[in-house]
Design a protein around this nucleic acid. Structure first.
Ligand code: SF4
Ligand code: SF4
Lengths: 152, 152
DNA sequence: AAATATCCGACTTCTTCGGTCCTCATTCAG
DNA sequence: CTGAATGAGGACCGAAGAAGTCGGATATTT
């Protein structure tokens, strides 16, 4: 429960890797996969998905590969997860079809929807460049985002 | 992904229901299940779990049932989820055994761990009483909790 | 033409989730 | 004391989703 899909995980890693190598015009899926030990074919499909949603640019053929479509700071973790795993929802009822059949009698879906928004906000406040920063040398905790939880 | 288990969902509903009926000394699992249409046997096991972790008090026999072990405001959504679904982690690597095998080469687990803490903080800031409040009549969004996301 | 890539869907395998069933222990009413 | 009501807890099953694989088609450079 509440676990990030490994595909989304891999996607974040790949994007971070791309963000760390801004010089190269394009990196192939295999290159990135080898760098981390991710199954190449799986990562390939993930990157294709990210390309289709506009987060990456792709170029086929030799010396082809993928590159960030926009600045690393402009890409949020939320977009990545959304692209790879589809709509982000904490509860089952939000999914239009095949949700939970007791939606009418449920009394906690509204509060939970706000919780959902809050968590989504947290994810939106995180960018790829945040992940790429060399955190070890900067132990001081700088406030990057502020999230306000408002219930009821 | 990132979806709340239905069991945890049911658990929250049940706790809210109990919080809304503070008069009655005890409510049986079947009563609560019928009130919402939750499978009775399933809810029973959930309540048993919550009892074992100390969130509920139980009483067998006729006119028995469950009651909140502490004040509704003292029970956080985080505790509930933790009790029902086990340790809360958004990544696979955190789980000691059978985590992700590329943990050593992974460069995003530290940042993600902070994200994990942040989301956990959000959940901890939500109490059962927050859910039980009659939100419809009070549309003004009062800030209940403040969460600071610190990355890097 | 050959090598290197992306692109894309079908498929298998594995785990987890949601749910049921059955049995035993406890408590209370009569 | 006995039986109904209730909790406690394990075994089990089917459905769904996740992780990963395979095979083939297309595009681009050399
Ligand atoms: S309707 Fe209620 S019980 Fe069903 S998924 Fe939504 S929040 Fe959970
Ligand atoms: S080690 Fe990295 S890739 Fe593996 S689960 Fe943890 S964060 Fe994800």
């Amino acid at each position: 429960m509440l676990k990030l899909t490994k595909k989304a995980d891999y996607g974040l890693m790949a994007l971070k890797y791309l963000a760390e190598h801004p010089e190269t015009p394009a990196l192939s899926a295999k290159e990135i996969a080898d760098a981390y030990g991710i199954p190449a074919q799986l990562l390939a499909k993930i990157l294709q998905r990210l390309t289709k949603t506009g987060l990456l640019k792709s170029h086929a053929g030799m010396n082809g590969g993928y590159a960030l479509a926009k600045d690393a700071e402009k890409i949020s973790a939320f977009e990545v997860i959304l692209s790879i795993d589809g709509p982000f929802f904490i509860t089952s009822c939000t999914k239009g079809a095949h949700g939970c059949d007791l939606t009418p009698s449920c009394t906690i879906k509204e509060p939970l929807a706000r919780v959902n928004d809050t968590i989504a906000g947290v994810l939106k406040s995180i960018s790829i460049s945040d992940l790429a920063e060399d955190g070890q040398t900067v132990p001081k905790a700088a406030a990057h985002g502020l999230v306000t939880l408002t219930l009821s």
